[in-house]
Design a protein around this nucleic acid. Structure first.
Lengths: 104, 104
DNA sequence: TTGACATGAAACCTTTTGGTTTCCTATTAA
DNA sequence: TTAATAGGAAACCAAAAGGTTTCATGTCAA
């Protein structure tokens, strides 16, 4: 919960499912928890880890916590991948250029 | 060691370092182990996990085991990333096309 | 053929991870 | 104002992960 390691964060399938879910729109903690066969605190821990890895943002509104996907948090993974993508196919060098081009 | 989950495999920094090392050329187990501050069996476990995730291939030659990077093993990660890359920047849609285009 | 080398394998240990239940607090609606 | 709701926090647990040492085995070279 303290190490904001994005690679660790995406290692867990539940967390990847949560990210896919949030790609469809922002959701409250309980909304997410209701979609999984596990307790709300368990989902809450996954959300905390995703937040620490900057893969989601949490907006607290009153008693609710709205979870929003932060796709930019995946860029370190994409950049890491570009290094290896050069071994796949030259066409994929476009990935490298694209990532560099859209750098914030 | 039984679950060939590529996301788990790349979660560990040591394993990512091993992959980077093998990008420079094939290496024997001891050659890799000598580059890390941990025992050879520990490195050997990481290699076994990388192999089960299809991220490396191991060619046994006599008493030696030559470890070779298998960059194609990363494609599932790249494909997963393309889904989220659409939220970054349209330029990155090229990534999706590139991955699709170089599909085996 | 014998000794050194390369690696695999087993047993073991500690820390981390992913889950649980239970409880507390803040907010909102009736 | 009081009851229900949303979610954070703590204590706890089992299993998995990452490491160790020690030993066994197959291969190569002197």
């Amino acid at each position: 919960m303290t190490d904001p390691d994005v690679f660790r964060a995406i290692a867990d399938p539940t967390r990847r499912q949560i990210m896919a879910l949030l790609a469809g729109g922002d959701l409250r903690v309980s909304d997410i928890a209701s979609r999984f066969d596990m307790s709300r605190p368990a989902v809450s821990k996954h959300l905390a880890l995703l937040e620490s890895a900057q893969l989601i943002r949490v907006e607290r509104q009153g008693r609710e916590a709205i979870n929003c996907l932060n796709p930019d948090g995946l860029k370190p993974v994409a950049e890491w991948l570009t290094f290896f993508s050069q071994f796949w196919d030259d066409k994929l060098l476009k990935l490298k250029q694209a990532v560099e081009g859209s750098d914030d």
